[in-house]
Design a binder for these strands. Structure first.
Lengths: 220, 220
DNA sequence: AAAATTTTTTAGATTTACCTAAAAATAAAA
DNA sequence: TTTTATTTTTAGGTAAATCTAAAAAATTTT
C-alpha cells in the first residue's frame, strides 16, 4: 500500500513517461511542486519498493508494479471527474483539484460501485480514456488540431491541457467535446487557425490549437 | 485550515463532548488509537490555534471555532454515508470506514452540490442528524430501547453503535430504521428483551437493546 | 577536449505526528 | 490524611517528507 505522497509521485511519473522514456528528476520536481533534492529522496524510496527502476543520474521508469499502481490512480481520478460532471453538475474546468483529492481514497469496493453507478464510462470529461478495473484501456487515435491542413475536418475528442483557464476559454468559444470542426484557414502572420464550427467562423491562437485533440478526421 | 489529523482530533473531541463536558486525554487517545502523550502534544497545538480550550490536567473543550470545524466534518461524514448507501448501494454496516476518508476532502462546493444531489437529507443511514451548511441541526428525541417498559412501543430511529458487527446483527434480526416495535417481555434472568416486530416475536440481548434508539414511543 | 552550464545527488536540518520512559499532578482508597 | 492508583504531562527520540547549500556527474557549448 502506498502513501498519499507516493501515489502522487507514481501518477506524475506515469504521465511524464507518456512523453519520454526515462523520466527526469527535474521534470518530476516541477510537476510535484517540490525541489529536485526531495524528488531524489522519494525516488530512492520508490526504487526500494520496486515501483520504479532507477539508475543514478539516469532518471526513472515505472516497473510493472509501479505502472499498475499509477494506472489505478488515473482510473480513480477520471471516474471521480465523471461523477463530478455528470452527477454534481461541475463544469469540466472545475473538477481537477477535487478529483486530485478523491483519487487517493482507498477502497476497491467504492471505486467499482462508483464505476457501475456511472454506467462504466469509457472516457472522462476531457476525453481521456478510463482504464477498466484490470487497468486496460484503449487510447483513441488523436491528432492535434494544429497539425490539420486547410480543408481538413474532424471531431473534438480531447484536450492536452487541463488548466481551468484553458478549458474555460474553450467553453466560451463553444469548442467542447463532440463538436464537429473544419479548418478554413491558417493565418501566415501568427499561425492562428480559422475554423468552421456549427456554421460559424472562429479564429483560435496557435497555442490553443496545439492543445485540442481531433479524431475522425477527414483529409481534404 | 486544519490538517487531516487535526480534523480527526476535533471530530473525536466533539463526539466525546456529547457525553462529558471536559474531554479527557485518555479518552481521546483510545478513540484515535494513539498514546496519551501524543494526545497532549496535539491538544497543545489545537489550543494554540484556538480550536480548543485547554487547562493542564483538566481536559479540553471545543471553542466555537473548534466546534464549528468539527460539525463541518460530521456533516461531510454523514452526507457521504448517505451517498454510499443511497447511490452506491452500500449496506449501512459498510459505510463507516470509507466515509472516514471522504470526510476530509476539502471543497465547500463539492459538499454543497453533494447535499443537493442527495436531496438535502436530514439524517444519515444510522439515523444521525445531518447538520446543514450553517452547522445547524435538530437532534431528534431518542430513548434507548432498554429503557422501555413492557407494553411500550415506538419506532427504531437510530443506533448508538456503528460497528459493522452490531449493524450486521441488527440487519439479520430485521431491526432496521423505521421499523415499528413493541416490548412484549423483559427476561429476569439476563435482562434480555422480547420484542414484537412485524407480527414476529424476537429476543434481543441487553447489550443490543442498549444501542437501539427509539422515538415516537407510546407509553403503555 | 576543455570550459561552462545544467542536472542530479549528498549532507545536514526542519516539521509533523508519533513513540517510550519517567516525572508530576490529580483522584481514590485505606 | 497518608498511601496507592490513575491520569496527564514532560523530555528526548523516531520516521516521513520536505528543505537549503554544496558537491558530483552529465551534457552542451566553445
Amino acid at each position: 500500500m502506498q502513501s498519499f505522497t507516493e501515489e502522487n509521485y507514481l501518477k506524475v511519473i506515469y504521465h511524464l513517461a507518456e512523453k519520454t522514456n526515462n523520466v527526469q528528476t527535474n521534470a518530476i520536481a516541477e510537476q510535484i511542486q517540490t525541489k529536485p533534492a526531495s524528488v531524489t529522496d522519494m525516488i530512492k524510496k520508490l526504487a526500494e519498493k520496486e515501483l520504479v527502476d532507477y539508475i543514478k543520474y539516469q532518471g526513472v521508469t515505472l516497473t510493472d508494479k509501479g505502472r499498475h499502481a499509477a494506472v489505478d490512480i488515473v482510473r480513480k481520478h477520471r471516474l471521480w471527474e465523471v461523477f463530478l460532471v455528470d452527477k454534481l453538475n461541475f463544469k469540466w474546468d472545475e473538477v481537477h483539484d477535487v478529483a486530485e483529492e478523491l483519487e487517493h481514497i482507498k477502497s476497491v469496493n467504492l471505486i467499482e460501485r462508483l464505476d457501475e453507478f456511472l454506467g462504466f464510462p469509457k472516457s472522462d470529461p476531457h476525453g481521456d480514456p478510463i482504464p477498466d478495473k484490470n487497468g486496460r484501456f484503449t487510447k483513441t487515435q488523436f491528432i492535434k488540431l494544429i497539425e490539420l491542413k486547410i480543408g481538413d475536418s474532424g471531431t473534438i475528442t480531447g484536450v492536452s491541457q487541463h488548466s481551468s483557464a484553458f478549458l474555460k476559454h474553450l467553453e466560451k468559444l463553444g469548442l467542447t467535446l463532440g463538436k464537429q470542426i473544419k479548418i478554413s484557414d491558417v493565418t501566415d502572420f501568427d499561425g492562428s487557425v480559422e475554423i468552421l464550427i456549427e456554421e460559424k467562423q472562429i479564429n483560435i491562437s496557435r497555442e490553443v490549437a496545439k492543445h485540442i485533440l481531433i479524431s475522425n478526421n477527414g483529409k481534404n
